[in-house]
């Protein structure tokens, strides 16, 4: 649920986002991944967006944000295909990079369970693609604290996801 913004804002029901942007996201996915992967890229995009939706800043440009998320998801798909072609163990990421988390959509359950600050920073940083300076505007505190929250959050996600 939304927490730290002082300006009142209301996010529309997510269904509206799917209706308004489904077509555009489909076009992005079709342009970037093989047709066999389009469905996955589209679903991953909206699933990630749905997970983050209640925490997003009210003034975010939804179209630009969704396109960014879709592009990231497409990159993830390329990456995981490439991984599968090579030795999967040799290529494990050293941290949970923005891409690696998405192989398992269950990760969003863990993101939702993080403490507020970590969850918000991770959401803005890795899903919204916002710079730390902008994140600090939204969640308050210092940039160093935001970086710390992101790294703590990622560490606890990594503990859950990578065994």
């Amino acid at each position: 649920m939304p927490s730290s913004e002082e300006t009142p804002r209301s996010l529309p029901p997510f269904e509206q986002v799917v209706e308004e942007h489904g077509r555009r996201v489909l076009a992005v996915c079709r342009a970037r991944v093989a047709s066999a992967d389009v469905d996955d890229a589209w679903s991953e995009t909206f699933l990630a967006a749905l997970s983050a939706w209640p925490d997003l800043p009210g003034d975010l440009d939804v179209t630009a944000w969704l396109v960014t998320v879709a592009k990231r998801k497409c990159t993830d798909i390329h990456r995981s295909r490439a991984r599968r072609r090579t030795d999967p163990v040799a290529d494990l990421p050293e941290v949970v990079a923005p891409g690696a988390e998405t192989d398992d959509e269950g990760v969003w359950r863990h993101v939702a369970a993080l403490p507020d600050k970590q969850r918000q920073v991770i959401t803005y940083r890795y899903l919204g693609g916002l710079p730390y300076a902008r994140i600090v505007d939204l969640v308050g505190g210092s940039e160093a604290a935001a970086r710390r929250a992101a790294s703590d959050g990622l560490r606890s996600l990594r503990d859950k996801e990578i065994r």
Partner: peptide, 17 residues
């Protein structure tokens, strides 16, 4: 888009979103 919507609903339901 209708098919993708169905699928999104099914998967979002599975993960409790």
């Amino acid at each position: 888009l209708a098919r993708l919507h169905d699928r999104l609903v099914a998967r979002a339901g599975e993960v409790g979103l």
